[in-house]
Nucleic acid binder design. Structure first.
Lengths: 229, 229
DNA sequence: ATAGTTATCGACTATAAGGCGAAAACTGGC
DNA sequence: GCCAGTTTTCGCCTTATAGTCGATAACTAT
């Protein structure tokens, strides 16, 4: 037996696209104009088409909101399948996690904006739970993979990277050891260049880049864990 | 628009249920008697019902093959959605990873058996890829979570635990430090009891148990990583 | 008793992390 | 130009964890 006659089974994809801006981890949401859940904020996404897999599908729907080429990372998050997650319909959602680096600023439609991932505005359906899952997945992976490359610009200073990690993780990280630890493990490579100092002066910071911009699992970075006491 | 009229969209759940037996990581498969893919081996699972989420669904279908209460762990793995993953139908699968401890031996139907997860017999559809994903997820999580509790019996010796980890990971692990490292981190707790020695003699081994049988993320266990050289 | 077997412990070495203060390299005001 | 202020980077020291090896404990079988 295939889809129930009285209540057809639909499948949609949704994407929690995250970025760090001004020290805040943000998620992309658009405001629904029409019922159901008019006025509430929703994740980008849409129905799974007959001839595509979920990865193609999420890229296709994201293209309505943002230049997909500016996404530095996209991965499956989880399936959300509560029979009542969308009132009046039976729709299973495959959620994705997308990341945008700090040095690109994708233009988005008028109904779409960026909101603090820790405190989003009222969302449609279960989209708040999906945002939480995406945020938690990012935080977990930051400490045992090199996923930071997807949030950081192509070259950056140590203190700039520290700010990105602190914003994404939601707590301050000790910057002193970050260069040493990440460099020793081969995650960071110095470019040899230096950044211009800010207007307050200070020594110019050396620029680094991620050695490997493909996702790799590493030992966890103790420097990224919360302080013990 | 809901499901395409000419090619209805179905959703199924599948479970890669793994266990360690005699030093081998095994997966539960049943042999299909009827087309399509008659004679090939398949993962347990079935269609998503109209009033259940995927977690309830996978437990319901697993109950046909095994006593679900004997599963020590069950988690979402990934969505498999290639439009041609099942010939002639459009069916999206949510795959789960299940684990069975070494000290229970669930009875299974006649068409169902356990096969080496590293080298399964010819499978139906994309079930071999799902087995690989489940195996890889287990291996990754063994080294940064306490998921070992789900494979091990309720109490065990250090060398017994070493064998389980070695079988699941596919490579030998250094046993010398395992007790010290896992105990220091609070993952293992001595029960105070000792096991009877084997027939060849030897000092009786102390029995341990996992301190916390709920899944917790820990620092990775360096003792579980492959040797450096 | 004694040889064989397995488990556990202690001592030592090596590696990595964390903290702190000094030094380096800049800006802007005087 | 000099000096105060700012930010980054480096070096040294302490602590924590991992890895190795050999010694010792606790058993079985003959």
């Amino acid at each position: 037996m295939s889809a129930n006659a009285t209540r057809p089974l639909d499948h949609e994809v949704l994407a929690a696209v995250l970025r760090v801006r001004d020290g805040v981890l943000e998620v992309m949401l658009w405001q629904r104009a029409l019922p159901p859940a008019a006025g509430r904020w929703a994740l980008p996404g849409g129905a799974l088409g007959p001839d595509e897999d979920v990865a193609s599908c999420v890229r296709r729907h994201l293209a309505d909101k943002v230049d997909v080429a500016q996404l530095s990372h996209l991965e499956q998050l989880a399936v959300f399948s509560d029979p009542h997650r969308v009132p009046g319909r039976r729709v299973v959602a495959t959620a994705f996690l997308g990341l945008v680096p700090t040095d690109v600023d994708p233009s988005v439609p008028a109904d779409t904006g960026w909101h603090a991932a820790d405190n989003p505005p009222p969302t449609a359906f279960d989209h708040d739970a999906i945002v939480r899952r995406g945020r938690d997945r990012l935080r977990a992976k930051l400490s045992y993979t090199n996923l930071g490359f997807a949030l950081a610009p192509s070259t950056f200073t140590i203190s700039g990277l520290r700010e990105i990690y602190a914003a994404a993780l939601g707590y301050d990280v000790a910057a002193t050891n970050m260069q040493r630890v990440l460099t020793r493990r081969g995650v960071l490579t110095p470019t040899g260049e230096a950044s211009a100092p800010g207007r307050a002066g200070g020594r110019p910071a050396a620029l680094y880049r991620f050695t490997d911009r493909s996702l790799r699992v590493t030992d966890p970075f103790a420097v990224l864990r919360p302080p013990r006491r």
